[in-house]
Write a protein that binds this DNA or RNA. Structure first.
Length: 139
DNA sequence: ATGCTGACTAACA
DNA sequence: TTGTTAGCCAGCA
């Protein structure tokens, strides 16, 4: 391949990010990092954040509010992101965080991912499961 | 071209 | 447990 100066990944990266974010269903959330993994090709959590910040008019059809940080917290400032999520049924704890282990989007379906050239989200580790259990309560 | 900032994270103290 | 540090890459001055 010609040494095509890697002119950066172009803005086309953003479009793919939006395509994935659109798959996150109401009532669930995903993280910047997870979206980056699904998009693949060197995408990074920060790029996802940049893409979200550059939505503009697309914000109407891309559920940007469902993307939160790895800590289960809201990264935006001065936005109604939390309110929007609450309205969708996502619960926050006293620390203002979402229980990711409970409402985290498991990633796109294998078929969809393959069809569109995306990468399925890696299975969660046993360590994650332990964390989940520790937070889980037999109500 | 160089440096700084940012809707991030994993690693470490 | 929480706070800090260093890498990330794209956009802009």
């Amino acid at each position: 391949m010609s040494t095509i100066t890697i002119t950066m990944h172009e803005r086309r990266f953003f479009e793919r990010i939006y395509q994935v974010v659109e798959q996150v269903p109401r009532g669930q959330v995903s993280t910047y990092g997870d979206i980056a993994i699904i998009v693949g090709g060197g995408c990074d959590a920060r790029i996802v954040g940049l893409a979200m910040g550059d939505l503009g008019p697309r914000a109407a059809k891309v559920p940007w509010q469902r993307i939160i940080n790895r800590s289960g917290g809201i990264s935006t400032q001065g936005s109604n992101q939390r309110e929007l999520l609450v309205a969708e049924g996502v619960e926050f704890d006293e620390k203002g965080k979402v229980r990711l282990e409970r409402v985290r989007w498991p990633g796109p379906g294998a078929e969809w991912a393959t069809k569109h050239g995306f990468q399925p989200l890696p299975a969660r580790t046993s360590k994650d499961d332990e964390e989940d259990k520790s937070q889980l309560r037999l109500f």
